[in-house]
Design a protein around this nucleic acid. Sequence first.
DNA 1: CTGTTAGCGCCTTCAT
DNA 2: ATGAAGGCGCTAACAG
Lengths: 332, 332
Amino acid sequence: MTVTIYDVAREAGVSMATVSRVVNNNPNVKPQTRKKVFEAIERLGYRPNAVARGLASKKTTTVGVVIPDISNMLFSEVARGIEDIANMYHYNIILCNADKRKEKEIKVINTLLEKQVDGLLFMGGSVTDEHVQAFRTSSVPIVLCATRDETNQYPYVDIDHQQAAFDAVNALVQDGHRDIAMISGNLQDTNNGYSRYMGYKEALEKNNMPFREEYVRIGNYRYDSGIESMKYFLELEQRPTAVFAANDEMAVGAIHAIQDSGLRVPEDISVISVDNSRIASMVRPQLTAIAQPMYDIGAVSMRLLTKLMKNEKIEDTRVVLPHELVKRHSTR
Amino acid sequence: MTVTIYDVAREAGVSMATVSRVVNNNPNVKPQTRKKVFEAIERLGYRPNAVARGLASKKTTTVGVVIPDISNMLFSEVARGIEDIANMYHYNIILCNADKRKEKEIKVINTLLEKQVDGLLFMGGSVTDEHVQAFRTSSVPIVLCATRDETNQYPYVDIDHQQAAFDAVNALVQDGHRDIAMISGNLQDTNNGYSRYMGYKEALEKNNMPFREEYVRIGNYRYDSGIESMKYFLELEQRPTAVFAANDEMAVGAIHAIQDSGLRVPEDISVISVDNSRIASMVRPQLTAIAQPMYDIGAVSMRLLTKLMKNEKIEDTRVVLPHELVKRHSTR
DNA sequence: CTGTTAGCGCCTTCAT
DNA sequence: ATGAAGGCGCTAACAG
């Protein structure tokens, strides 16, 4: 039924070892023999079985990727970076959504390891002890992507979220704003939501500005929660003159809430965010934002993983990628 | 080094077959024995090797997915649908980007098949003879997702693109528009770009309206090309009163080009599109669009594939999902 | 209910 | 440059 390496060997009149060598580009084969084998392969329509190969060689040329949500623009951009580099090094990707739910994350880590992936890339909200526990049982290298574990024992590629938030708020302060509100993400995301919130607080503090409870709303990173949060701010006695949103989508929501109320951006209220996804230039006014290099985070972490998998020397396994302010028209 | 089923068997004082049964939930094991085995597994930290299992059982519980671009919102939405259902049926996904480039598509189809996936989901621009050629060599089922082959010999899940375009343009006609332009996608995409273009022409024809060369621009599905195309239309002697864009992003670009020129949507020019991705409600005015059920296309095609993989009876292997008009505020 | 015995398709020394 | 032989870790009859 299925044609194996034996069949090819017989057809070509050589041993299976020789066929194996040909298939694996081993130089120790006479060109003439090689040709015979290739012809036999062609004739029989032989296709090597990667599973058998994986069992025998203990390598699958596959890496596992744990991702919170593939349909989220940011993550899919990271995924694209991962894919491109993986491709370049001839690795395939097994992608698993885990919805930022811890138990599901642990579960997929285990199935990925069962599948004998050669390495693992983990993307998620936060890395807890349980995660580390699961990582420990792995005999293959693991790289954290756009996140980190508390004690920094695992290699990671990330940006400095707190600094990014700080820079965003600071830019607002530079523009003369004193009443700056924040639409935050989930504070349980230690590495992300919380860091940006801390960056906001830090910026206020450094500039001797008071922190006000009512100037912070917790959103869910979605457009609608940007609108809701902004509506709340607009009804405040002393409404803010500027808003810092933890991501683009909520910022766009905020802009529209402002415009819907008859006010203008940035004349009446400025809006800034962190992310700079493609949507940032797809609003009017175009969004001023701190740019996170998502594609690069994916690409660099995959590159790091390839080095780890090949036991290459690594200068640094903790890499923090730079962010930058992209000034557009939603601030003044 | 690695602990195998043998080690567990020895530790538990049973045979490897029994361990295998326990691991695979075979009911034919005395509860007491089962308990012993589980304890041994726990003690040794045994993790089943899916590769070995795949070789022995000839099943990998993995399906391959070929996708044009994971960072594209539409496709990642489809991917999410695929993932969710795959998950539900305990399959894992190997995702491969192929950039709509034929040779790359053929290549990943082959590597996926080498990896012994239990089934294949193909998403791409168009399905040529070469694709069919590659499909033929597969011994596992294949489902086309959001596309079809010319002769409809392979199962597919898709929408009726031509009808969708027709309905969009027709809605414009109903609103009293006579001068309707189109921002099209690539006409080489037989199943998609071309079909929508044909739907546009068909709608004009049925309504006895002339087709005009200068009312069609070919974009690349991106925001910027929406802007460029619209600018072109705005400079026409007789500028259109309505525009049909082949996807949301170009439609948003068109809206902004119109607004930037000082005109209003929909008062001066109406805009309609096909897709209804999340971005459609993230513009002002919100976009009227024909909704494509992307998530469902993914989910349904994966469901179809699971049936095929299990040799279940199938009523119909060619499914066309319904689309619908979502009226918002960019048309009048 | 449990154990024995063949493979699954390929890689990899070790000889020749 | 080529061949022979022993696994890789597990499943799946087949016995008992």
